[in-house]
Nucleic acid binder design. Sequence first.
DNA 1: AGAATAACCCGAACGC
DNA 2: TGCGTTCGGGTTATTC
Length: 275
Amino acid sequence: MPEFPEVKTLVNWLNHQDFFSIKINKIIFIDAIVLKNSTKKQFIDFVCNETIKKISQIGKFIIFYLSNGKIITIHLRLEGKIFYLSANEKSKFPLVEFYLDNDKKIVYDDSRKFGTINIYDNYQKLLDSSEIKKLGKQPFDQALTANYLLNCFKNKNQKIKTTLLDQTIIAGIGNIYADETLFLCKISPFRKAKDVSLDECQQIINNCRKIMAQSIKNKGTTVFSYQYALNHSGSFQKYLKVYGRKNLSCLRCGSTLCWTKINGRGTTYCKKCQK
DNA sequence: AGAATAACCCGAACGC
DNA sequence: TGCGTTCGGGTTATTC
């Protein structure tokens, strides 16, 4: 499932493609369920005859800047993908196809149909939108400090695993990197967030950054069907220490890794070395 | 108000 | 082979 490193990998890949400044001629909807703040007609009027100028990322959101100053956001949720294909190629689960003036198309593909696409008239409206405004600090933001985290955690009665998944605190951590970060920090996922110390907050930040940087180098983690482009997968799954290793031995102490659900999320951890 | 849970969705994996 | 059931996962809405 795409988290910050996987979205980063995708955005890097997209920024190396050749569709910039090429006119979008036509939009085909296979299923418009992904449109959250516009109708099909509004979306077509908004996008057609424009070009893509730049692509960036905020947390797990992908931001497309168009030639008219307008903005499209895409959130991949669980299974969303963006492909750049020849006009006559077909992806497996296309929902929206953007046909360009070069006989190619950009496809939003999503077997689960969980992803979201929103449009904004300008950058300020994006920043003021409910989906972006509430986001917390991004993993590599200088403003993500131990004191910031401690302050966010101090009244949280939730388990730390749940709190790490809260996008209003750190924007970009998902289930894989939450489990991996807690393992590296030797913190039990069951600990209450308010009981995490300042020093541990710093460790969470350091280890989260370390592991995400490694993942980005390896073009993300491929589990389930993640790929950042058609037939391009990441390889960071080879380096995961707990996620997906239920019942295997802990790489640090050798005891058997446990698996449980914490607020509905699968959680893998080492009972012996995570306190 | 804060926290837990249900709902969204459907392919894949599993059970019979 | 084929049908039915279960599961998962990010986020929001709903319930507790």
